[in-house]
Design a protein around this nucleic acid. Sequence first.
DNA 1: CTCACGTGCAACCAAGAGGTTGCATTTACG
DNA 2: CGTAAATGCAACCTCTTGGTTGCACGTGAG
Lengths: 117, 117
Amino acid sequence: MSNARELAQAKIFFALGDVTRLSVLRNISSKGALSASALAVGSHVSRQAIAKHLRVLERARLVGHEKRGREVLYALRPERFDDVRAFLDAVSARWDRALERLRSSLEEPDPETESKK
Amino acid sequence: MSNARELAQAKIFFALGDVTRLSVLRNISSKGALSASALAVGSHVSRQAIAKHLRVLERARLVGHEKRGREVLYALRPERFDDVRAFLDAVSARWDRALERLRSSLEEPDPETESKK
DNA sequence: CTCACGTGCAACCAAGAGGTTGCATTTACG
DNA sequence: CGTAAATGCAACCTCTTGGTTGCACGTGAG
């Protein structure tokens, strides 16, 4: 039930569930690859806090890093967002089917299929 | 910078960032509206824990509740997922544009636009 | 070479998350 | 009416989060 895929999904969503991290993602998605220090400049928290957030984002594989001289640049990995979309689509689809089942069972009592229970 | 919309987005993602809550969502998305007790049956945690998770999901407006006799049924509100998709699309689009800018500025120095900095 | 800058690591702290148990309350159903 | 089921509320506990400060280490610019 709680296999590795679902755990990875939860990790991704967890990484997205913080305003500071969302702001970090917005920054590197609009301005390109940035260092932890650069990201901390416009932020209201310290550089070390940003570094921690970057580690969370990286463990969720939403960003990657690359050593560039004496600084470390963090960049987006947008391909991971497809997994998130897949989850959303799956849930929505299941929900639509559940609604459809409910609707048909209400509008049309249909004793044949009803007798299955 | 950190306005109400971004806070709401973070709340949605936070609500999705827990394996138990993801499992709850899967359950009510496949089996339809369920009560907290019913959701707790197949789970490895207590009914009260499920109730807390349901409150988190409800504050993020991902689910809604309806009193049905002596029990309370929780159902999905899939329209909220559109907001999530909107965020993902926005970030991906910005990232694509950032990549495009980077690529063009590398392949073609273009002193005219470069002189803007 | 020097030194300031960017980074990483560690200790620490307050607050919140996630979970439990226990009890009170409501309510459908024999 | 009586009772068992479903819920709500509160207290409590432990572990994690998000944040800080301080310091040590590498490395690039002048």
